[in-house]
Simulated scan of single mutants.
Amino acid sequence: MHQAGKITSHAAITAIGSYVPERVLTNSHLEQMVETSHEWIVQRTGIVERRIAAENEYCSDLCIAAVRDLQARYGIQLDDVDYIITATSSPDTVFPSMSARVQAAFGIHGCGATDVQAACAGFVSALQLANGLLLSGMHRKILVIGAETLSKITDYTDRTTCILFGDGASAVIVERTEETGSFIASAVSTDGDSGHHLYRSALSSEISGVPITANDKIIQNGREVYKWAVTSVSSGVKRLLNAADLTTDQIDWFVPHSANLRMIESICERTGIPLERTLYSLVHYGNTSAASIPLALDLAIQDNRIRQGQQILLYGFGGGLTQAGLILRWMLP
């Protein structure tokens, strides 16, 4: 069942920064690794290339670099950040968390730190949690990060998955506002019984009684995940719009998880949101899971497509099978 509704908010995004590794893995490179072709990959996914972390570059490094970019662009001080939330499925250490690693790197004291593991819905889930913490009155300034080094957990002998995934990170500051915040409506849904269609396991050999492979790599039943996303995510987006009393015409930008361009096209067709008003980061970055939505946002900010006052619908979906949606009014000039 989908839970969707208007929300109370005293929160707004006040800064954003991003980082992607230098190494580029093109479709031509993949042609030398597995039986595939540039044309086949583009036709099926829309992906042209993806960024890959260096051998000694890890998720925490990407998080820190994205936060540094945020600081450089907005002149943001971090010493008054009172909570850090990082969404990732590919941390270099399970504990300490990536958020704790960021806290240490920037010397932020008196600060809470936790990681969110909601796969491709992670960044939106982290924003939802940040809004709740700010609304509680206990916190005023939260650093939210979406970061992945999926190349570290990708099986490059499996042509069905290795063509998809890339590495990257993006960070935002979410601050308490005295006026009504920018978060308008929220939606969540999980289909845990179908979790065996997209997973990573190093220990357990079953999910919901279904045998799985515990090789610590991403394993996906692409056909089933595609069917789930096109049907369930499309209905979730519609419920979110209805809960907000908004029509598709009132949404300036739709930012779904950048999983697959064909999937996004099908979701747009079913929801009535034009592809021309849809932002994605997959063409040059691939599927970066928890980082894909903020990377797409930042690309659009840097080329002046996103403007202050516009209404934006963010929608993450993936492993779990979990989905999370958020409608916000963009307040950054």
Rank of each mutant, 00 (worst) to 15 (best):
Ile212Leu: 04
Thr213Pro: 03
Asp216Trp: 08
Asp216Ser: 13
Lys217Pro: 09
Ile218Tyr: 10
Ile219Val: 15
Ile219Cys: 15
Ile219Met: 14
Arg223Glu: 12
Val225Ala: 03
Trp228Asp: 00
Trp228Arg: 03
Ala229His: 06
Ser232Asp: 12
Ser232Phe: 15
Val233Glu: 08
Ser234Ala: 13
Ser235Gly: 07
Ser235Val: 15
Leu240Val: 08
Asn242Arg: 10
Asn242Trp: 09
Asn242Tyr: 13
Ala244Ser: 07
Asp245Ile: 12
Asp245Ala: 15
Thr248Leu: 15
Asp249Glu: 15
Asp252Ala: 15
Asp252Lys: 11
Trp253Phe: 13
Phe254Arg: 04
His257Asp: 06
His257Asn: 00
His257Ile: 11
His257Gln: 03
Ser258Arg: 04
Ser258Lys: 03
Ala259Tyr: 05
Asn260Gln: 05
Asn260Asp: 08
Asn260Pro: 05
Leu261Gly: 00
Leu261His: 11
Arg262Ile: 01
Met263Thr: 08
Ile264Asn: 06
Ser266Trp: 11
Ile267Phe: 11
Glu269Trp: 06
Arg270Ile: 14
Gly272Leu: 10
Gly272Val: 11
Ile273His: 08
Ile273Thr: 02
Pro274Ser: 09
Pro274Glu: 03
Thr278Met: 06
Thr278Lys: 07
Thr278Pro: 10
Tyr280Gly: 00
Tyr280Lys: 02
Tyr280Asp: 01
Leu282Thr: 00
Val283Gln: 14
Asn287Ser: 02
Ser289Phe: 03
Ala291Tyr: 00
Ile293Glu: 01
Pro294Tyr: 03
Pro294Val: 01
Ala296Glu: 00
Leu297Cys: 03
Asp298Lys: 10
Ala300Asp: 08
Ala300Tyr: 12
Ile301Phe: 11
Asp303Asn: 07
Asn304Asp: 14
Asn304Ile: 07
Arg305Trp: 12
Ile306Lys: 05
Arg307Gly: 10
Gln308His: 15
Gln308Leu: 11
